[in-house]
Structures are given as structure tokens and as C-alpha cells.
């Protein structure tokens, strides 16, 4: 398998803040590789380095076999890039946007239509509409079509699903999956941890550092404890009560329940009694599978406590 990106020891500093610290990773051919992390983790900076828009302070980076620093002009021909804000001309129509990007990359819409047809067909009925008047989901599809129009070997998508509703998001991931058939490697970033499961491999990133790189299932399995999930109507009380219980290692809200770990990975009836004492009558506690978010939390805590 060919390496599409190999980066080692990438660091980048801005005036005040260290954006990236010693980042190393590899991306293989035809995989969907996700950078998952909160805002300000350094995702955009890293993507700009990969797309040759920024120079790293330190480290080496090879993209598509080319040095991203020296070979940037050659490299730019083979990358499809979709920046955080959908880079569309708001005053041009859908069709004009697509045609423009096609000519800029020295191709035509016709030539690569089969590649984008799946995506573009959704918005084609509106090809005469001004891009500024499209909904978020449609803008996203158009921006993706534009990024794909020159049949790039590497597609770099910076937070493509931010600000887009859940339906469009889900569709978007379906589309990315289909693109894999065309031998396109996809690098994607997102702050939404639940989207990690849609990637082949992910890197969890926080404060400019990579916490973990693996396939999402393995990352979940990396959770080092037995995880339990507790439910009761009085959530706030429940969290506090669980934290007071001596056997508890951690308790934190998670969706409609509270996730708990125990010092010895198990609990007994004394927990129910403890909860009853503070007035929480109905509690159901079940063993639960850790999610990416649980693992992310665990890794973050480890990082902060050394």
C-alpha cells in the first residue's frame, strides 16, 4: 500500500500560541482518514500545511510522494481542497462555480462528470441558482463537487460538516464512502466525535497534539476500564451522588445517561442504597460500550495528569 501522506515532527507556532506540536502520521492510499478534535486543536493549521498554504516551523512532510515544502507547485495540481468555510462564489450560480473551478484546474465539467455525478445530481436541478441562496447542505455538496472536479488524488476537507444539519451530514459521509471507489484518498477533519466512526482511521487531536491514531473501533476498545451507564430522572443529583460514592472512579454526563467507572471495575448493591439515601429511587445501571468520546476523555485526562 502506498503512503499518500507521511508527516514527521511537524510543529508550527503562531505569535502567541503553539498551534502544532511534533505531529507525525501517515495516510494510506484510498482511505478516509479523520482528524477529530475540538475547535482550536490545530486541525485547520495542519490541513493548511498539508495543502502547502502554510510552512511548518519544523518537521518533514511528503504528500503524494512530493515534498510539500519544495514541490508545492506540482503538488497543488493534484490536491482537492475544501476549506472550512465553503469556498464558493456567492454571487455566481451553481453551474458557474463548477465551471470556473473546472477551467482553473484545466479541465471541463464534462470530462470528470462521472466522478461528481452522484453528488452533483442532487443540486443540478438548481444549477441556475446563485450559490449564496443555497441551503447549507446544498452549499456543502457544491463545494465538494468543485473540489473534486479535477479528479484529485487527495481530497482535503476541513470541517465539511460543521453547521450542516444532521440529515445532510449523514448523506455527506455516504458520498465520501462512495468516492473511495475512485481511488481518491480523503483527509477530513471534524469536531464531531461521533463522525469518527465513519472514517477508516482517525487521529484524535487536542491542543496541537495527537492523542491517538488508529481505526475507530480499536480506539474505542482502547478504553482501559469497564464502563457503566446509569439512568435516572434526576440527572444532576445522580451525577453528584455517584461522585460521592466511594467506589466511583469517575462519573460524567453522557447524553441521556451518566457514564461511570469504578476503582475495581464493578459495583454492588451498596451503590443503589447510597442513591436511595439521597432520594434517587429509580436508577438503572448497565454495562456499556465505550464510545470514541469516552476514550477521548480518558486520553485527555491522562494528558493533563501526566
Amino acid at each position: 500500500m502506498q503512503e499518500i501522506i507521511s508527516a514527521s515532527g511537524i510543529s508550527k507556532k503562531f505569535e502567541a500560541a503553539q498551534a502544532l506540536k511534533d505531529i507525525s502520521f501517515e495516510v494510506n492510499e484510498s482511505e478516509i482518514f479523520g482528524f477529530i478534535g475540538p475547535d482550536g486543536a490545530g486541525k485547520t493549521t495542519l490541513f493548511r500545511i498539508i495543502t502547502t498554504l502554510l510552512l511548518p516551523d519544523e518537521g518533514e512532510i511528503k504528500v503524494l510522494g512530493l515534498d510539500a515544502i519544495k514541490g508545492f507547485l506540482e503538488l497543488r495540481k493534484n490536491i482537492g481542497y475544501m476549506p472550512g468555510r465553503f469556498s464558493l462564489y456567492q454571487d455566481l450560480t451553481v453551474e458557474e462555480n463548477l465551471n470556473f473551478y473546472a477551467t482553473v484546474f484545466g479541465t471541463t465539467v464534462k470530462e470528470n462528470y462521472d466522478l461528481i455525478s452522484d453528488i452533483y445530481s442532487h443540486i443540478e436541478p438548481f444549477r441556475k441558482r446563485i450559490a449564496g441562496k443555497l441551503s447549507g447542505g446544498m452549499k456543502q455538496k457544491l463545494a465538494l463537487s468543485c473540489a473534486l472536479i479535477h479528479k484529485p488524488k487527495l481530497l482535503v476537507l476541513d470541517e465539511p460538516t460543521t453547521g450542516v444539519d444532521a440529515v445532510s451530514r449523514s448523506e455527506f459521509w455516504d458520498m465520501l464512502k462512495k468516492l473511495k471507489q475512485h481511488n481518491i484518498t480523503i483527509l477530513v477533519s471534524t469536531p464531531y466525535l461521533d463522525e469518527a466512526m465513519r472514517c477508516n482511521r482517525v487521529a484524535l487531536i487536542q491542543n496541537g497534539k495527537i492523542l491517538s491514531i488508529d481505526n475507530p473501533q480499536k480506539i474505542r476498545e482502547g478504553f482501559s476500564r469497564k464502563l457503566f451507564s446509569a439512568k435516572a430522572p434526576e440527572k444532576h443529583k445522580l451525577i453528584n451522588a455517584l461522585r460521592e460514592y466511594p467506589g466511583t472512579l469517575s462519573a460524567y454526563p453522557f447524553g441521556d445517561s451518566v457514564h461511570i467507572t469504578f476503582h475495581n471495575d464493578e459495583f454492588d448493591d451498596s451503590l443503589y442504597e447510597h442513591l436511595k439515601k439521597v432520594g434517587i429511587e429509580k436508577t438503572t445501571i448497565t454495562e456499556s460500550e465505550a464510545s470514541i468520546e469516552d476514550r477521548f476523555l480518558e486520553l485527555m485526562k491522562k494528558g493533563t495528569t501526566g
Binding site: L53, I79, Y81, P83, R85, S87, L88, Y89, V104
Partner: peptide
């Protein structure tokens, strides 16, 4: 401002 410059820069233009 609209971020289109990023894409233009990454293009062979």
C-alpha cells in the same frame, strides 16, 4: 474573506 483565495492558491493558477 470568503476563503476562496485559499482554493485559488492551492489551484495550479
Amino acid at each position: 474573506e470568503f476563503g476562496t483565495m485559499e482554493v485559488l492558491l492551492v489551484s495550479p493558477l
